[in-house]
Nucleic acid binder design. Structure first.
Length: 523
RNA sequence: GGCAAGGUAGCUCAGCGGUUAGAGCGGGCGCUUCAUAAGCGCUAGGCCACAGGUUCGAAUCCUGUCCUUGCUACCA
């Protein structure tokens, strides 16, 4: 069975409304997914929400709702958000899905049966807020715990632990042997540093049902529920299983499989292992340490890459609901349009470093790059074609062909290596070149001299064809805008195949559509 | 404290041993009128954090200092 390019985002924890950070991660994953499809690959793009755990249970109680009702509302909000972002996701996982519960329980039972976990008593400090155990080492010099842990309580309880120590060596070797496993490289170094300088503590993978009911019951001991992170990571294989991926299904017995129902029709290709897990820098340890070990013990192949992005600030300050330093992506999209939002976050910030959102910066990129750069180029090119040639595309001319082809090559190479910011820079070098070309050839002067008719034809073809190629190159980033350029060119298809970014595909003697501003100026 | 990355034009950054240190944005000055008062061209602006050293030659390599950021730890 052939395998699709399988890309995932982190699943968002439903303890609040979607914000900029969520939106950013989903957009970069979507751009990569669309780029791969445009390159002709089969792609499966997964996103979703993480719903179990103490904080969700508490938030539901605070709002006087059942956890399920609370989650249903927020899951709907996140689904709406995904569509607001124009995501091309193929599925949307909820960790309260029946299929997910079935897979988590099956895998947990398998781990338990094969001796990878054990029961032990823990006595010590616990932070309900972070759902994590604390030790004396977590104390600050004055004896208190960091405020980020909230109220810290002392408790003594039994739990099940997942053995990690014996996995440290092969994991280091795997990371060293696979330089792209964790990207960018400095994140990889951090993980190696962590693994080389510390002995991994076994991971507590349950919580007593006595104090937390909002979780997946542990199959081998009903007095516990599954730790939320252990549950959450498994989403990446739940969905392949539910679509009939043989790699995962082989781990399940017949009754597990029947619990996957109602099952969508199986896909004609495999999904696991994932090609890319897109995540934020805060959850790198879960994805680069715990998750590979979980997979190894389940005898499943490891994902190809964990792609770690940075965080946004606003005006140089940390985003924070309590101080009101926030960016509301939905408001931005409503005011400026979806493609403007997608453009800004990808163009402003490379995948890896932290970035800084400023409203002035957003406005500047919108005006200079989208309205005056790309938008005006398409508008002036098509307006002249309409005015001087009645909208009829002249015969092919290759004056800009080699420059366009160079940009196409660069853009494709950047897309293949997930260098999205660099890809946009390449594309805009063609925008700039075409604007310069208008200036140098001055078609508006040629139009005044009938003897220059042939030259004018050449110039107009070069401009129209450049606009068409720009549409194809931009499709992964700005799908709506790319579609508009195509329809203004009078092309009825969708510019979603990079193979069409080949010079000369625009055929002569067809009539273009009506030019209209792609990004209206806003003053 | 340890490890790592970095400190280059007003801003964001590239350059990482070899001609007068670059780009984009922003500033200033011109040109143009097809276009969303858009576009194009020219230009100003930098003890390349600081101090030593290696070298014929150093933003570029080495050492130290100061500062920023990330990870990690507080222990001999």
């Amino acid at each position: 069975m052939t395998k699709a390019f399988y890309i995932t985002t982190a699943i968002d924890y439903v303890n609040g409304q979607p914000h900029l950070g969520h939106g950013y991660e989903k957009v970069i994953a979507d751009v990569i997914a669309r780029a791969r499809r445009s390159l002709g690959e089969k792609v499966f793009f997964l996103t979703g929400v993480d719903e179990h755990g103490q904080k969700v249970q508490q938030a539901a109680v605070n709002e006087g709702k059942s956890p399920q009702a609370y989650c249903d509302e927020l899951a709907a909000a996140f689904k709406d958000f995904a569509s607001k972002l124009g995501l091309s996701n193929d599925d949307f996982i909820r960790t309260t899905d029946r299929r997910h519960e079935a897979v988590v329980q099956a895998l947990l039972a398998k781990l338990h049966a094969s001796g990878h976990c054990y029961k032990a008593t823990y006595k010590g400090f616990y932070s309900p807020k972070e759902e994590t155990f604390l030790t004396e080492r977590d104390r600050r010099p004055d004896g208190t715990f960091d405020p980020s842990y909230g109220e810290v309580i002392e408790l003594e309880e039994d739990n099940y632990y997942f053995r990690l120590k014996q996995h440290q060596r092969w994991l280091i070797e795997h990371i060293e042997a696979n330089p792209d496993f964790i990207a960018p490289p400095y994140r990889r170094n951090e993980v190696l540093g962590l693994l080389n300088n510390n002995v991994l503590e076994d991971l507590c993978i349950t919580r007593p049902a006595a104090r937390l009911t909002w979780g997946i019951p542990t199959p081998f001991d009903p007095s516990f529920v599954t730790y939320v992170w252990f549950d959450a990571l498994i989403n990446y294989v739940t969905v392949p299983a539910s679509f009939g991926d043989s790699a995962i299904l082989s781990l399940l017995n017949e009754s597990d499989k029947s619990s996957l129902a109602p099952r969508p029709s199986p896909l004609p290709f495999g999904l696991w292992p994932a090609d890319i897990h897109v995540i934020g820098k805060d959850i790198i340890k879960f994805h680069a340490v715990f998750w590979p070990i979980m997979l190894k013990t389940m005898e499943l192949p490891l994902p190809k890459q964990i792609l770690v992005h940075g965080f946004w600030q606003k005006d140089g300050q940390k985003l924070s609901k309590s101080t009101g330093n926030i960016v509301d992506p939905i408001a931005v999209i409503d005011e400026w349009g979806l493609d403007a939002f997608r453009y800004y976050v990808v163009r402003e910030l490379d995948i890896g470093p932290d970035g800084n959102w400023t409203d002035a910066g957003f406005r500047a990129r919108y005006q200079a790059e989208l309205a005056n750069g790309l938008g005006n180029l398409v508008n002036r090119s098509l307006s002249m074609l309409k005015r001087y040639r009645n909208g009829l595309v002249p015969a092919r001319s290759d004056e800009l062909a080699s420059e366009a082809e160079k940009v196409i090559r660069e853009t494709v190479a950047n897309l293949r290596s997930n260098q999205l910011q660099a890809a946009l820079q390449s594309v805009w070098s063609l925008v700039a070149r075409a604007n310069q070309y208008v200036d140098h050839t001055a078609p508006f002067k040629l139009a005044k001299d009938p003897a220059q008719a042939k030259r004018l034809d050449e110039v107009l073809y070069n401009l129209a064809e450049t606009c068409r190629i720009l549409a194809v190159l931009l499709w992964p980033f700005l799908p709506a805008t790319a579609g508009k350029i195509y329809s203004q060119l009078g092309l009825s298809e969708t510019p979603d195949k990079l193979a069409d970014a080949a010079w000369g595909r625009l055929s002569a003697d067809r009539t273009i559509g009506e030019p209209a501003a792609l990004f209206p100026r806003r003053d």
